[in-house]
Design a protein around this nucleic acid. Structure first.
Length: 272
DNA sequence: ACTATCCCCTGACGGC
DNA sequence: TGCCGTCAGGGGATAG
């Protein structure tokens, strides 16, 4: 499940591989990959030069010539790859476009949740997902996070997963951040004081930076553009460690469900 | 303006 | 061995 560090890893790879290149022909695109795309979007790729590539939350934004923009969201199991021209379409490949040097940009996704969208630059601010994003988890200020908490009437875990409050966190890094900040995931967000919120913000940025340095976490399917797994998995301290001893106090890590998401925590280090 | 719930989708896994 | 039910989970739609 690509979250901020995994998306950042992909974006950095795309920058190295794609900036200055041009798209060639679109080789295929499944129907549901871009359901909301404008008619004729397939013809809008060819010959476009690739410019700035950036990330907003978990969205990947690829700027192209003539004010066109490609927006990619990997959701749960989506993966982007750069492949040589000899590459043969795989079972789960949903989207493939050739590059001017004949390599291919491929989006593969077993569950078909990932999206590739096509917009004009001027339409970005009206994008239904992008326009609602809260401050990026890496850039959020203490005041912004405190404000988000104060206005929330939910468990902190649920609030952190809400991309309109904080953009970029998913299930893995919320659990890890709450553990590092010693905050129980069911804690009512609005009840957290400035000191605990700052401890949380500090934990979030620290963990995200470490995960980016490790090129993300490969729990299930994530890989970078070249198919390499992320290296942060061994650094996870609670996520998917149900029943294993807490690395700080030895208590058994517990799993509960909050907002429909599996939630892992140490009952002693993170007292309610 | 919030928050909660359902839904999409399919590989993995457990039970029998 | 194999069939079948259940689960996972990001985010959009919809309901409350």
């Amino acid at each position: 499940m690509p979250e901020l560090p995994e998306v950042e890893t992909v974006v950095r790879g795309l920058r190295r591989c794609l900036v200055g290149e041009r798209f060639g022909a679109m080789l295929f695109a499944s129907q549901r990959i871009g359901r909301s795309n404008p008619a004729g979007w397939r013809s809008r790729l060819g010959g476009r030069q690739i410019g700035e590539i950036s990330r907003r939350g978990k969205y990947i934004i690829v700027c192209l010539s003539d004010n066109n923009v490609m927006i990619v969201h990997l959701r749960m199991t989506g993966r982007l790859w750069i492949k040589p021209s000899s590459y043969v379409r795989g079972r789960h490949d949903r989207f493939m476009v050739s590059l001017s040097d004949d390599r291919r940009l491929v989006l593969s996704d077993a569950r078909q949740f990932a999206r590739v969208e096509w917009r004009l630059q001027s339409e970005l601010e009206n994008h239904p997902g992008l326009k609602k994003l809260g401050p990026d988890a890496l850039a959020i200020t203490p005041a912004q996070l405190l404000d988000a908490c104060k206005r929330s009437h939910r468990p902190i875990k649920s609030m952190l997963l809400d991309q309109t409050r904080v953009a970029g966190l998913g299930n893995i890094y919320t659990d890890e951040s709450l553990f590092a900040a010693k905050i129980h995931p069911t804690t009512f967000a609005g009840s957290l004081g400035p000191k605990r919120v700052e401890r949380l913000r500090s934990a979030i940025t620290s963990i995200l930076h470490q995960a980016i340095d490790a090129c993300g976490t490969t729990f299930d399917t994530f890989s970078d553009l070249n198919g390499h797994a992320g290296g942060f998995g061994p650094c996870l301290r609670v996520y998917h460690r149900t029943g294993q001893p807490c690395l700080v106090c030895g208590s058994s890590i517990r799993r509960i469900v909050i907002a429909g998401r599996g939630t892992h925590f140490c009952p002693l280090c993170q007292r309610a």
